[in-house]
Design a protein around this nucleic acid. Structure first.
Lengths: 147, 147
DNA sequence: CATACTCTCTACAGACACTGTAGGTTCAAG
DNA sequence: CTTGAACCTACAGTGTCTGTAGAGAGTATG
């Protein structure tokens, strides 16, 4: 993107076009996830169209739950167009596995919470079954390992 | 717990008895989640048996996914033994709702990730379907709002 | 050209729930 | 009395941003 490009986007324009907030874009630049763009004579950031693509890629990957570190890997891989995409698949599979695990844990959590609620007969706090369960894991039916 | 109590626990003993790490106990004291205990002449923390109960309560609540702020509320409510436990129920219900929502989101995420994996034919990165999907939410089937 | 107004700039603090580090002190056992 | 584990404080770092403050840049109108 040459400086002379009249179609350059300011950071606000990039934010609107990509759905990533201005402050977040600056943050991504700060941690080296994206390249620093050229600046206007007054010091404002100016972006070309490819920056929109990149920001959308990042945003969608974030929405799919990938960490910024993983996204960094994906971006690096995408630079090597001729490489087999087996590594990319591997990363996505690993992530899908993580997600499945988290779902399992949350499900047993949900079961336990619902059981607690069902079994409370709304008495005084002093005899509250919910409170007892909170105090004592032995009263739980499931193992609900930390979410 | 009088200072003279020979059965007092040091922070390490409390950690073992409750399953909460030493540093975490100090952290909880720092943020005012638990009361500062009495100290030995040399300045070391000394805890009585009720501290073990409290730490277990906190740990189990954390395992069930409650935030420290919510646990703070629960502890405050537990101090008022005669109060109806409707508020406690309310808190647990709200949390159960949050958990359900998270499960829903993770499920649609999982679906999308699995679809991405299935549809990749392991070519070069340049034509990788996974990469395309990451770049473009329009290629998604589900709405998979942020997890 | 002056003014107003929006956008952008940097730098730093805060959120959550801890974990880790550095450098020192206390305590119980041998 | 010495050793070694456990303890102490204070502070920085994790991840992914969000929010704030105060100042400068760019644009539209009078």
């Amino acid at each position: 993107m040459p400086l002379s490009d009249k179609n350059a986007l300011t950071i606000g324009g990039l934010a609107k076009a990509s759905g990533v907030k201005v402050t977040t874009i600056r943050y991504y630049e700060g941690i080296g996830l994206i390249e620093p763009p050229v600046r206007s004579p007054g010091g404002q950031r100016l972006y070309g169209g490819e920056a929109v693509e990149r920001m959308r890629f990042i945003r969608h990957s974030r929405d799919l739950g990938f960490s910024l570190d993983t996204i960094r890997e994906l971006i690096a891989l995408s630079g090597d167009k001729d490489r087999s995409c087996a590594e990319v698949d591997e990363i996505v599979k690993r992530h899908a596995g993580d997600v499945r695990l988290r779902i399992e844990r949350l499900k047993s959590l949900e079961k336990e919470l619902n059981r607690m609620i069902r079994e409370c007969s709304a008495n005084r706090v002093a005899e509250c079954h919910v409170m007892e369960v909170l105090a004592n894991h032995a009263l739980c039916e499931t193992e609900h390992l930390k979410a």
